[in-house]
Amino acid sequence: MSATHIGWSGLAASLVLVAVAVGLSGWQRLHLSRSVLWACARAAAQLFVVGWALKLVLDPDAPVVWAWLWVAVMVVFSGVTIRNRAREVPGIWALGTVAMLVVVVVSLAVILGFGMFPVEGRTIVPLAGMMIGNSMTASVLVGRRIVGELRDKRDEVEARLALGHAWPDAARPYVRSALRTALVPQIESTKAVGLVFLPGAMTGLVLAGVDAADAVSIQLAIMYLILGSVATSITVIGLGLTRRLFTPDHRLRRVVRSPG
C-alpha cells in the first residue's frame, strides 16, 4: 500500500465508515440504511465503469479526440442532471446544456490557450469535469431561485411592468438577488480554502507526491477558474431564463409551482 494505491483491503476498510452511517441510521430510526447502501453500491459501480473508460481515454497513446468526446458527453449529462434537479424551471435542460458548454469552452480556452496545462486527455477530462461539476450545482440553484423570486414577487414585478419598465429592468432586482445567492457559496469556499478545508485536487497532488508549492499553485489556478466558471454559468442561466419567463411584449409568464 502507498499514498496512491490503497488496494482492495484499503477499500474494504473504508466500508467501516459506511457501516457506521448505517448503524447511526438504524439507531436514530432515520430509515436511510437502504439508501446509504444503495448510494455506496451505485457509486462503486459508476466509478469502476468510469475508471475503466477513463483508463482508455487517458492513455497517453490514445487520440485526444476521445477526451473531447468524453467532455461532450459530460456536457449533455450535466444538462440532464440540471433538468432533473430543477424540473419546475422552464427550458432548463437547453439552458443548462448551453451554460455548461460555455463554461467548458471558456475555461478550457483559458487553461489550454495560456499553456497552463498540456492538451492531453489526462488534463482535458478532469479539468472540464471540475468546472462542470461546480457550475452545475450553482446553475440548479440560480435557476430555482430566479423562478422562485419572480413567482413569489410577482406583484412587485408586475407593478414595475405597469409603470412602463421593460422586462429586463422589471426583473433586475430579483435576478440580481438570485445570482448573488448562487455565487456567494463559491466565494465563501474560495475564502475559506486552506483555513477550513484542503481542496480535492491539492490533496490528490500532495498524496501523489507532488511538491506542496506546486500543488498550491495548481490548486489556486483551478479555484480561480472554478469561480469564473460558476459566475459564467449562472450568468448564462440568469439571462436566458429571465428572457424565457417574459413574453416579447413584456408580460411575466405564469410558472406552475412544482408539487412538494
Binding site: 406583484d155 412587485e156 408586475e158 407593478a159 411592468l161 405597469a162 409603470l163 412602463g164 419598465h165 421593460a166 411584449d249 413584456h250 408580460r251
Partner: peptide, 19 residues
C-alpha cells in the same frame, strides 16, 4: 408599444406594492 401604453394607462393594485 406596451411600455408606452402602460405609462399612459396606469395601474394601482389591490394590495399596495411597496418596494
Amino acid at each position: 408599444d406596451p411600455l408606452e401604453l402602460r405609462r399612459r394607462v396606469g395601474m394601482v393594485f389591490q394590495k399596495p406594492v411597496v418596494f
